[in-house]
Design a protein around this nucleic acid. Structure first.
Lengths: 224, 224
DNA sequence: CCTATTGGTCACAAGACCGTGACACCACGA
DNA sequence: TCGTGGTGTCACGGTCTTGTGACCAATAGG
């Protein structure tokens, strides 16, 4: 059972989507306000949340933030056409996808499946890169079968790097993603943390296999 | 993972799913008709049954009913997109989940795991972790055969931790799940309660076997 | 070969984080 | 009214983490 939680204040849109999604084989619960939705989530965890941005009372983005504080539920935001400002805000609030209204039920269904597929594959909750195994649920890292102890900051940085395999992430980005932005932009903070991680997971820290330095740009995690 | 029984009449879909599931580490037996499947079940109890609704001879829903009369096996129904009538009938017949074809093998795998997980944790009224036995029905906990008295709050917290074995749960989540969210975010409440539980169930509270502290994140219950 | 720039390494002090015990408060029943 | 068990809060102390700056090494460009 799919268990979609739909939050949309316009009754006609709400019932329309509810009907269409139900027809596509999902089990849908629909609410008109964020408060009701949050109550529902606390009681029964849905599989995915579809959330209109414009809601009376608590707005969708705020609901999204609050859900994120509770849980890592998949969230798709719905917005009226043209509100492109919202995209950034919405994704920053932790939404997994962003759909512009009016939306074809078929399209929405496809997006739902895409998000679920993406998260499902991630929610194997355990990724393997060569000898390195990272369990996101248990927050455990092991190398060649032996468990490695990482400190909270080290773990957050590693997870952030791993979230974008093959991508070069610059120091400013990492500072914002892993630390609060209250730190001086130019410091050896990121480097020092990378060094600490390397000391723990790299067979030869001086010649790293997992976390590569890209001079002038930042760091890149790439599977060996 | 052992023993999936797949029943699907379309040979190409059948072999495709069989291959994919096998690749994902399941052991799969596949049949094209309900009769064969029922025979198989009588002979060797599989761990879970994946059942196409449209079958020649006895259809999937009927097979589902008959299996239910025999046993409380987990059953996932497969149906072609758009047959929304089937959802109700299928679930009424006792299916545990319902997947619309075409289905990504990865998604199916996730659904299988979800069903198994759900049933495992929901149906077993009594779980055992090493010396620790938790009886959800009677709300009793015993350690090495001797009954342990836990207060209501302690029990709720322990059950919440046990509901997600191996997962790290942070304090905010636990505060919301076990207490009402009316409390200050930063308090030693969770810690104090964990300490009280440890004092009762851990042989050496300072070196816990069941409830592990994950510094900077929260607590993790893991079987010893 | 020299220089400027960038990244690596290290040690340490500040402070974050957690375990622990004490204690006050509350609800409830004797 | 008192006693009792359950709970939330607090303060203290020990341990672990981590930001920082100084200094060294590597690299690129001329």
């Amino acid at each position: 059972m799919a268990g979609i939680l739909l939050v949309e204040d316009d009754p006609s849109v709400r019932t329309g989507l509810e009907l269409a999604l139900t027809r596509q084989g999902h089990s849908v619960t629909a609410y008109g306000t964020g408060e009701e939705a949050l109550d529902h989530i606390r009681a029964r965890r849905p599989e995915i949340v579809i959330l209109d941005v414009m809601l009376p009372g608590i707005d969708g983005v705020e609901v999204c933030r609050r859900i994120r504080k509770l849980d890592s539920l998949p969230i798709i935001l719905l917005t009226a056409r043209g509100d492109d400002l919202d995209v950034v805000v919405g994704l920053e609030a932790g939404a997994d996808d962003y759909v512009v209204k009016p939306v074809e039920p078929r399209v929405l269904d496809a997006r739902i499946r895409a998000v679920l597929r993406r998260l499902e594959s991630a929610s194997a909750d355990r990724v393997t890169f060569g000898d390195l195994v990272i369990d996101r649920g248990a927050l455990k890292v092991s190398l060649a079968g032996r468990e490695i102890h990482l400190t909270p900051t080290e773990l957050r940085l590693l997870l952030e790097l791993v979230r974008h395999p093959g991508q070069v992430l610059n120091r400013r980005y990492l500072l914002r993603a892993v630390w609060d932005h209250t730190h001086v932009a130019d410091s050896r903070l990121v480097d020092a943390c990378v060094q600490r991680i390397r000391a723990k997971i790299e067979p030869v820290p001086a010649d790293p296999v997992y976390i590569h330095t890209v001079r002038g740009f930042g760091y890149r995690f790439s599977p060996p």
